[in-house]
Each structure stands twice: as structure tokens, then as C-alpha cells.
Amino acid sequence: MIEIIDVFLLFFIVVCSVAAIFLKDLLSAIIILAAFSFLMAVEWTVLNAVDVAFTEAAVGAGITSVLLIATLSRTKRYEEQVNVPKEFAPVVHKGISTKIMPIVVVVITGAVLLYGTIDMPAFEDPNAPINKHVAPTYIHDADHEAGSINIVTAILANYRGYDTLGETTVIFAAGICVVVLLRREKWPEKKIT
């Protein structure tokens, strides 16, 4: 049963991503991206990653879309066809090579990734190395060693708490980078009348 839901969800996810890439109307593309994120969150819930699904629903479908739409409101809604004047034609390479090159790169990358799956442990395999080495200890000890029933939180805030400090710093960095790029008033703000 789960497999069927899984396959259906994945199918919709692929459809969404194709639509998000090829739509000319950026607003629709963004909304479809939000749908993609949301379906992804559902898929992760199916795969039992509840914390991640929660975060993705809040971030991917929420904040990212809001920011993207806000950006659109300050820029343009539609993708445009650029008319290249004659004198600039040599600068803007518009040959077949520019269309084919990305496809070649993508196909090669995908082929390498697929090659990697040959020796991969099977999906849901309980004997895969990742389920044998480090993780069992977390599952076994998290509640009495780290004091949290939710193992993900235990790892996040305790075992690998330093990573989370890094994560918080990344957020802070994003905030200050956006402020430095977009804010217009003087920084030590005075009252503007």
C-alpha cells in the first residue's frame, strides 16, 4: 500500500518539477514549486521523516514561496525572450551548442549517479551499513543519554549540537547578507519624520 502511495507521490513530484522548470509564467512556476515542496513534505511523511517534512512544509512551501513572490513583485512576472541586436550576436552565444551542452552535462552527471546505484544497498534494507554502524546507538541511547524521546531532536540539539550552531550561524549570515544588499536607510537608524 505504502509503495503505491509512494509511486503516485513521486510521479506527481516529477510532474511538478517539470512544470516548474518549463512554465514561462514565473508566478505559476513559483506556485508549482510550492506544490512540489508540499508534495515532497508529504512524501517525507510517508518515509517517516516527520521532522524534516514539518520543516519543509514550513520553509519550502512557506518562506521560500513568500520570498520568491516578493521578489517577483519587485521584478517581472514573465520570462522574456531577449532580442539580441546584431552587434551583440557574437557576445551572446545562441548556437545549438548552448542548447546541447547543458543536456550533455546533465546526462553525463545523471549517468554517473545511476552508475553509483548499482552497488547501492536496496531501498528499505534493514541490513544496509547506515543502519548498522552509528545509528543504532542513537536509537538505543537517545532517551536516557541525551534526554529526548524524539531522536532527531536529540541528535540535532545534543549529539551534533555543534552542527546546529553552524546552521543558526548560516541563518544569521543570510539575514545580514540580505540586509546589506537590500536595506536602503542608514544603518544606525534615526527617526525618519
Binding site: I63, A70, S73, G147, N158, T164, T168, I171, A174, L182
Partner: peptide
């Protein structure tokens, strides 16, 4: 863990608000 999570929450909420204000 609570202390740490509170720290995360403060930063995240403040930054998300800032991002929205600045972008929109």
C-alpha cells in the same frame, strides 16, 4: 537542549521577518 532551541527560535524568527521585510 531547551536553551539551544530557544536560541535557534529567536534567530530564525527574527531573520525570517527581516528577510520578508527587506525582500517585500
Amino acid at each position: 537542549m531547551y536553551g539551544v532551541e530557544i536560541g535557534v527560535q529567536i534567530t530564525v524568527s527574527a531573520v525570517m521577518t527581516t528577510l520578508f521585510f527587506e525582500t517585500a
